[in-house]
Amino acid sequence: MKIRSKDIFKIRSTQSLPAFLSETGMFVGKIVRNHPVRDFHGYADEGATKKKVLEDVFEKGDVYFLSGDIMMMDELGYLFFKDRTGDTFRWRGENVSTTEVESVVMNVAKLKCATVYGVEVPGSEGRAGMTAILDNDDSLDLDELAAGLKQALPPYARPLFVRSVKEMDMTGTYKLRKVDFQKEGFDPIKIKDKLFMFDSKADKYVPLTEQVYSDILSGKVRL
Rank of each mutant, 00 (worst) to 15 (best):
114 A>E: 02
156 Y>L: 08
76 L>F: 09
50 K>W: 03
29 G>T: 12
147 A>S: 12
80 F>G: 07
128 A>G: 01
36 P>Q: 10
70 I>S: 02
83 D>Y: 08
86 G>H: 13
163 R>N: 08
14 T>Y: 07
120 E>V: 15
76 L>Q: 06
68 G>T: 01
49 T>F: 08
141 D>G: 09
63 V>W: 03
27 F>N: 00
122 P>L: 06
104 V>M: 04
54 L>W: 01
113 C>F: 08
164 S>R: 04
130 M>A: 07
121 V>P: 02
106 M>E: 11
104 V>T: 04
76 L>K: 08
23 E>S: 15
18 P>L: 15
54 L>D: 03
84 R>A: 07
149 L>S: 11
36 P>D: 08
186 F>S: 05
32 V>E: 14
211 Q>K: 15
130 M>W: 02
43 Y>M: 09
169 D>Q: 00
161 F>N: 02
209 T>D: 13
170 M>G: 01
37 V>E: 10
60 K>D: 11
39 D>E: 05
19 A>W: 13
8 I>V: 07
43 Y>F: 13
127 R>G: 03
77 G>Y: 03
189 I>C: 13
116 V>F: 05
152 A>M: 11
128 A>E: 00
220 K>I: 09
222 R>D: 10
32 V>H: 13
178 K>Y: 09
208 L>W: 04
194 K>E: 06
176 L>W: 07
134 L>N: 01
189 I>P: 12
113 C>Q: 09
106 M>D: 07
162 V>D: 05
75 E>P: 04
108 V>M: 08
17 L>D: 12
222 R>S: 12
50 K>R: 10
80 F>S: 11
57 V>R: 04
21 L>F: 14
132 A>P: 01
100 E>M: 14
30 K>Y: 11
